[in-house]
Lab assay of single mutants.
Amino acid sequence: QVALSRTQVCGILREELFQGDAFHQSDTHIFIIMGASGDLAKKKIYPTIWWLFRDGLLPENTFIVGYARSRLTVADIRKQSEPFFKATPEEKLKLEDFFARNSYVAGQYDDAASYQRLNSHMNALHLGSQANRLFYLALPPTVYEAVTKNIHESCMSQIGWNRIIVEKPFGRDLQSSDRLSNHISSLFREDQIYRIDHYLGKEMVQNLMVLRFANRIFGPIWNRDNIACVILTFKEPFGTEGRGGYFDEFGIIRDVMQNHLLQMLCLVAMEKPASTNSDDVRDEKVKVLKCISEVQANNVVLGQYVGNPDGEGEATKGYLDDPTVPRGSTTATFAAVVLYVENERWDGVPFILRCGKALNERKAEVRLQFHDVAGDIFHQQCKRNELVIRVQPNEAVYTKMMTKKPGMFFNPEESELDLTYGNRYKNVKLPDAYERLILDVFCGSQMHFVRSDELREAWRIFTPLLHQIELEKPKPIPYIYGSRGPTEADELMKRVGFQYEGTYKWVNPHKL
């Protein structure tokens, strides 16, 4: 086992960053958080920038500027975001240094004079007029057009580079997404736009490419001749908990499936790229999406959770019991969808996408189930092999396979070949997804960000279904809070070829 401390991990990262040409360590950078008073800024962006600063992973002359409508001070920003920093008493001095680099400007999102004030403020910072500028839009999409237009007109660096990070949702359907994309691309070049999907920053999602293309053993079996089906799962054990009003506007397909799960599907299904260059990788992902037809209604199961009468606390409440959810809402909190990649490698292999709230566990994984062994000599005792990439929690890679049961006879039983990170790298604290992705933006690497043509294809696949749901308002199937979801989803999976045995229990190697 390799035991690495946080300091050692960050030392390795620093070495990698400083050796590259793309990370300008000594240049002045300004990180501007648009929507600095909001939840995302408070819980994710400010803490992430602090962790990067604490670990010495930001360029040395980096300033952080918050911008929002609320009249706040840096002290206010500190008060609301610091509880999420997880700072230790030993880091007190470092924390003071961090907040000394912070400033805040209040202004409207659609007022040109406010942006001119913001620009004057940035120019007044040390070497601010020639600094590289990175704008993070932690804002609702309704203000994107006004904000990007004003940034472009008043706040661009004339000497350094300018980059803009856009948070999902990128529209509600193909038409609104196209409108937003066309607007942003009329102001910024594609190499300046970073559409963030934080799932692409997760260690195991990034590991998929290495697993596939750096190991000879997987190449020959990664196709329709050997793989019976692919299941991509995202499960949350909690409901909307008072935030249903926002969720109800989008629903589970827009929230998770059309982005996170579809991105994971691309990494499983794509061909080997010409290189690890950002556009070479994204070219292959677009090719996969172009091979997927629009979702067919007979390959869809929609569910909505109801309270568990035997549960406790939140578990007793259904989705419609959330006071922020519109009365009688038919918005799905669970969806199972089957897609097919219609190309030579994957023809006929079902890709089953499942996601839901208020389920029995927290889990995100990719599961490849292989065909049955031909010419069975073990009297149907063999179960199908599976390769599982567990994204969260407890990152893991393992192969479910058959071995001989101890004893006199040739009785096979299920076991696993474990390729888990935790076994080799004991207690290594890896940077989280937002840390990686923000560092990628500083480096100018777009590999783990969504390109406009990729986004367009993703919406093309799901828009007809979303429009049909909005028009017909089908009643989702009720499922109990804390269950596996509607049984109809299991029946759909069985119908397209997935075999669920229920006889195997994964042993978490992190707890051995």
Rank of each mutant, 00 (worst) to 15 (best):
V286W: 07
V337W: 07
T399Q: 08
A433I: 03
S415I: 06
L261A: 10
H260E: 01
G356L: 04
E472G: 14
L289S: 07
E472A: 14
N277C: 11
Q446F: 01
P431I: 07
L267C: 08
V301I: 14
V306G: 11
R451Y: 03
N299H: 14
N423Y: 11
L466R: 00
R460S: 08
M401K: 01
S275L: 05
E414C: 12
N277Y: 13
F334K: 06
F334Q: 07
S445C: 13
K473F: 11
L339I: 10
R345L: 10
T487L: 15
Q392C: 06
A315E: 13
C382N: 14
V349M: 06
Y319Q: 03
Y434N: 05
V300I: 12
R436A: 10
A458C: 08
F409W: 12
A335R: 04
E386F: 01
K475C: 13
K400C: 01
L302Q: 11
H371W: 09
V301D: 00
V325H: 05
F449N: 01
N299D: 13
N259T: 04
G375P: 11
Q380T: 14
Y504N: 05
L261C: 08
E501I: 11
K290H: 10
G307N: 12
R495Q: 12
R345T: 15
L261Y: 07
P476N: 08
P476Y: 00
V301S: 09
L353P: 03
F498V: 13
G311Y: 09
T403G: 10
M264H: 02
A315W: 11
N360P: 06
A335Y: 03
E294C: 13
M447I: 12
G482H: 08
I480R: 15
N360C: 06
S293W: 06
Q369D: 02
I477V: 12
D440W: 06
K404W: 01
S293K: 15
L465A: 10
F498R: 07
D310Q: 11
L262T: 14
N411T: 14
Q304V: 06
M270Y: 03
T403V: 08
T276K: 13
D418Q: 06
K287P: 01
V306Y: 12
A332Q: 09
E365M: 08
G485C: 05
Q392H: 07
D440C: 00
Q258F: 02
K429H: 14
N299L: 11
T403P: 04
V301M: 06
L353N: 05
V338F: 07
R436H: 07
K363E: 07
F378H: 05
P474L: 13
R254Y: 02
F442C: 08
E284I: 05
Q258T: 08
C443I: 12
V450I: 07
E501M: 11
S293G: 12
Q369N: 06
D280M: 11
Q263F: 00
D310Y: 15
T463F: 04
P393F: 02
E344Y: 06
E342L: 13
V337H: 07
Q296Y: 09
V496M: 09
A489L: 06
K363H: 03
L455I: 00
S275E: 05
K285V: 03
V281W: 01
S329H: 05
Y481E: 02
V450H: 03
G311C: 14
E416W: 04
Q296L: 15
V301G: 00
D376C: 08
R451T: 04
R362E: 00
N308T: 10
Y434R: 01
V397I: 15
G444M: 06
G313W: 10
G375I: 06
I438Y: 06
F442D: 03
D280R: 10
K429R: 11
G311F: 09
P476S: 07
D490Y: 08
A269R: 05
D440T: 04
L471K: 15
V373E: 13
K287I: 06
A336M: 11
G328S: 14
G313Y: 11
R367G: 02
H379Y: 14
E344N: 09
V286Q: 09
T403A: 12
G313C: 12
R345Q: 11
R456K: 15
L471H: 15
Q258P: 06
E457G: 07
R362H: 12
R345K: 11
G407Q: 08
R327H: 14
D322P: 02
L265H: 01
V366T: 06
D255T: 01
Q304T: 09
V288W: 01
D453I: 05
M257Y: 06
T463C: 06
Q263P: 04
T487W: 13
K290L: 05
P464Y: 07
N360S: 09
Y479I: 04
G497L: 02
H260F: 02
V288P: 03
P406I: 06
I480M: 15
C355P: 04
V300E: 04
A489S: 14
D321W: 06
T403C: 14
K426D: 11
F351D: 05
T316S: 14
Y434H: 09
Q392M: 08
N308P: 08
Y305M: 03
V338L: 11
A458P: 05
Y421V: 07
Q296A: 14
D283R: 01
P412R: 08
M402Q: 14
E271T: 05
E491N: 14
L267D: 00
V288Q: 05
D453E: 01
R362N: 06
L339Y: 04
A358N: 02
A315C: 13
E314G: 10
K475G: 12
L302C: 08
G422P: 09
Q392D: 00
S483Y: 05
M447P: 07
V338C: 12
Y500S: 06
T333C: 00
A336V: 13
N259K: 03
M408A: 06
W346P: 06
